[in-house]
Computed example of a mutant assay.
Amino acid sequence: MRINLPTWLTLFRVALLPVMVAVFYLPFPGHNITAAIVFVLAAITDWLDGYLARRMKLTSAFGAFLDPVADKLMVAVTLFLLVEAHRGGWPGIVMAVTAAVIVGREISVSALREWMAGIGMRATVKVAFIGKLKTVMQMVALVVLIVQHEKAAEALRLYHIGEALLVIAGVLTIWSGLTYLRAAWPLLSSDMQEPSPVDKAGS
């Protein structure tokens, strides 16, 4: 199997995750800014690999599988870091609940898409505009919160902006998840049989 340029970029994005985690915790001046830069670099590769795959027609089955996995890993790992950094009090509760909503939605929609693909109806569950808006809002919020995760007194206003943006992203997450569910509901509520255990084992 030959790995093309977009897939190399996706693999690079996955490799950046442990780097971001290490930088997030290392006690050196500006570690929060550095962690945010690593996150932004990963987000840029997310856009770039998709652009190159479409522009240069460099698509592959492995790349199509890996790209959404890398995206979800990037968001989930960052949310876990932020939740751990904001334990206690209402800010910690808000962060934890919002993170649970976002990660739960990603798992649910991924399962829905897999089920739709299993019955040959994946095109029914397309990425909607609200999903793209949620992603943009979420990325901006995460960058702000990584930079201000220590909640220094002079930067609390920026931290609260990031917190508010993440809550808005959580609301958009629920909205987009319900949009996907509504699109798939006619099939989910039908009497269509699920794939047999043999089919599932071979998938």
Rank of each mutant, 00 (worst) to 15 (best):
R105P: 07
E114A: 12
I130W: 03
A64V: 12
G63I: 10
I102A: 02
V77H: 01
S60E: 10
M121G: 02
A117H: 01
R113F: 00
V127R: 07
A111N: 09
G89Y: 03
A64S: 12
G104K: 09
D71F: 05
L133P: 03
G92Q: 13
V101C: 02
I102T: 02
M116P: 04
G89A: 12
L73F: 10
K132D: 13
A100D: 08
I130E: 09
H86P: 04
V69H: 00
K72Q: 14
E84A: 15
V127M: 08
L81F: 02
G92V: 10
S108Q: 10
F80L: 15
V127G: 04
L73S: 10
M116Q: 12
P91Q: 11
F80R: 12
V94P: 02
D71P: 08
I107N: 01
I102W: 01
V75L: 11
F65R: 15
A64I: 06
T59S: 06
M116N: 09
A99N: 08
S110W: 00
S108Y: 11
I93N: 03
S108G: 06
V109L: 03
R105Y: 01
F129L: 15
V103F: 00
P91L: 10
G89E: 12
P68S: 06
V136D: 05
T98M: 06
A96K: 09
A64Y: 01
H86M: 08
G131H: 13
I119M: 07
T124W: 00
M121V: 08
E84M: 13
T135H: 08
M74V: 14
L73W: 02
R113I: 03
L66V: 09
M74W: 01
H86C: 04
R122P: 04
L112A: 04
K134D: 08
A70V: 07
A70D: 09
L66G: 02
A117C: 06
R122L: 12
M95L: 09
I93R: 08
F80V: 15
V103I: 15
D67M: 11
F65K: 14
V127Y: 02
I102F: 00
L79H: 05
G92C: 09
L73D: 06
H86F: 04
M95I: 08
F129M: 15
L81C: 13
I130G: 00
V125I: 14
M74K: 01
L81G: 06
